[in-house]
Design a protein around this nucleic acid. Structure first.
Lengths: 237, 237
DNA sequence: GTCAACTAAATTGTCAACAATTTTTAGCGT
DNA sequence: ACGCTAAAAATTGTTGACAATTTAGTTGAC
């Protein structure tokens, strides 16, 4: 049950969005890849209207770009876009973490600690899919616990974008933020030290950004069916 | 040509969104008002699919709430939502104004100065519609000039929400932020004084928020046709 | 061989009828 | 009159066929 679930009541649409997002962060769907409506319809066994709705949501999230009358592609954020996304995340998350320092209950802190433990476990067993998911979820959790619905919504948009950016520009080294930095943030929250929590968050996000190669921009395109590893019938040659 | 124009290529949909937004900030469409699809279809002389798309966009923007299978209403943000919206705006706009202090060209500053002049003119001639529109546009202009597309998009969401909130909770007194405070912000930008610009923006937004009555919550509902003052045929009694 | 115009295929965009759901209304017994 | 049930009306949600647009392919002149 991925954390980026949109507010849509329709399960199929959420599933489409989630699968595409997952394929992107796993780098099986590269930026620029074409997303044909009919193809997605076959893969997910649904109607074109549904696919269309899902693509519309994904465009809002910044994960795909829709060229009118020309179809949808995985978005290709430039270096500028990447910097903007991190800049916005910094602004929002500094506020969130500060807020949480004031309002966090013992239960909230336990939830966060438990989450970090999960992260560590996933890290230990080399489950990179879980690592990526949990890593993003940590930040979403802070937003959720701070209780601001709107800030959560905004952060969701930003997290999706930075995920795409990370998948696009990441070096072979650190794929995601390690649990240690999350731990330091949690420690500051627990100590109710707003300044330190804010500083740790800043450091963490800056670390994430500088771990990218924001100079070159390789952008190959990959096949859609393989990326979504669907069991839909391959087209007979 | 309203400033909140969404990225939609379709003119009709933009028009629907703009007219509804305008009716809301003018307080002719009150929060909670029902938005029936068929009614909107008649009013704007379009198809239901178009109306549906427009409502979907407006929901994303936070201006309407769609209750599944039950229809759409003008959103009714609570006090919590209002505080969140201003909190997010503060986070984003502090960053924007700081950024603009560094990057503003002489032309940018002239643009802003000209805009404030327009605000003053509208204020002088008592054109409250223009005052509301220009007042919001000033903040959007700062985002636009700072060159961050993503931050502009986020601020657009937030500005729409705070407009709704202002329309909902405003006292009879100050309807919008006066041009004077905008002037102070511009002065700080021109002086390249990041700290002061940030402070002025903070003060401005806090002033906006405290000018509201965030305790009571009157929410009458008004008629749809009259609010949009359409020339669509009234239903014969 | 290159380019242009033209035709055919593939793809997206739109619509109007149909289905599902909710709300209102009417009926009925107590 | 009140509460309950069931039909009827009103409203939203969905689907599949059709229209418009773009892309690819073909032909033919130079």
């Amino acid at each position: 049950m991925p954390w980026l679930s949109h507010s849509t009541t329709n399960d199929v649409i959420n599933q489409i969005c989630d699968r595409i997002w997952l394929a992107v962060v796993q780098r099986t769907l590269r930026p620029g890849a074409r997303l044909k409506e009919e193809e997605l319809t076959e893969i997910f066994g649904t109607t074109r209207a549904r696919v269309r709705q899902a693509l519309s949501i994904l465009e809002q999230d910044g994960l795909v770009t829709i060229y009118p009358n020309r179809g949808a592609c995985i978005a290709e954020p430039g270096v500028e876009d990447a910097q903007d996304a991190f800049s916005a995340r910094l602004a929002i998350e500094q506020r969130l973490v500060t807020r949480l320092c004031r309002s966090a209950s013992a239960e909230d802190i336990a939830t966060l600690r438990d989450h970090i433990a999960q992260e560590r476990a996933a890290h230990a067993r080399g489950d990179s899919e879980a690592v990526i998911r949990l890593s993003g979820e940590f930040h979403m959790l802070i937003a959720k616990l701070s209780g601001a619905e709107l800030l959560l919504k905004i952060l969701r948009m930003l997290t999706i974008r930075t995920s795409l950016i990370t998948a696009m520009y990441q070096t072979q080294a650190t794929q995601t933020c390690g649990p240690d930095e999350h731990d330091r943030i949690l420690a500051a929250i627990e100590a109710r030290d707003e300044t330190r929590a804010c500083h740790e968050m800043t450091h963490h996000l800056e670390h994430l950004e500088t771990a990218l190669r924001l100079s070159e921009a390789p952008m190959p395109v990959s096949g859609l069916r393989e990326a979504l590893h669907s069991m839909a019938p391959k087209r007979a040659t």
